[in-house]
Amino acid sequence: MEQQEIIQLLNAIGEQDDTVAFTGLYKYYFSGLVSFAHSIVKDRPFAEQAVENVFVRLWQNRKTLLTIKNISHYLYVSVKHESLNFVSRQKSIHYEEFGDDFMVTYSNAETLTIGNENLMKISFAINSLPPRCKLIFRLVKEERLKYSEVAQLLEISIKTVEAQLTIALEKISGVLQITLPEYHIYYKNKKSIKKNPTFKGFRKALCLL
């Protein structure tokens, strides 16, 4: 979903009490949030309940919805706190445990067929990432969180976010270098990439994808 569409949904929820838009927003974020909550509470029904509680509150406070600058960040932070409430009574949580518990894929019936092959390979590469690395990649790529927001959410440093993204990049570029010769050329001259700031920037761009 485009950023603009999300804003439209938020407008409809906030201004017109639109339950259809609310359902749309819910469906869009559900999977990602449940996966995130699951990595904290380690229990699927609890994870879903945490997400549900957050959305019930979001509806109750819908009049103030439009003042939220980054809804993705808001939702992830809310789900985190909600999930921590579930586990706080049981044990203390190690932040290293934040991760992505579910398999993700890029495959999509509407996607171009040529692209699909690469997308499947890339999804495979993403799924083989360590859970935390995968989560960070997804938060940046999919939920459009800033490095600083991811760092704050997972209580790690921005440097760690960057490092984790580099790992993700290495995996994905491994896929791309086979299928995309142009990238392969940059990849082969890895040394010059490091020296050359523009190529470095290019790698960073892939990191953000």
């Binding site: 999977s31 879903e48 579910f102 398999m103 993700v104 692209g115």
Partner: peptide
């Protein structure tokens, strides 16, 4: 064009989250 495709394709949670799960939750 690959970058464009990836830019425009959302990640799915294929097996792990079923539509019924989402529907019953909503």
């Amino acid at each position: 064009s690959e970058i464009n495709i990836i830019l425009n394709t959302p990640l799915n949670f294929d097996e792990s989250v079923k539509t019924e799960d989402i529907d019953s939750s909503i």
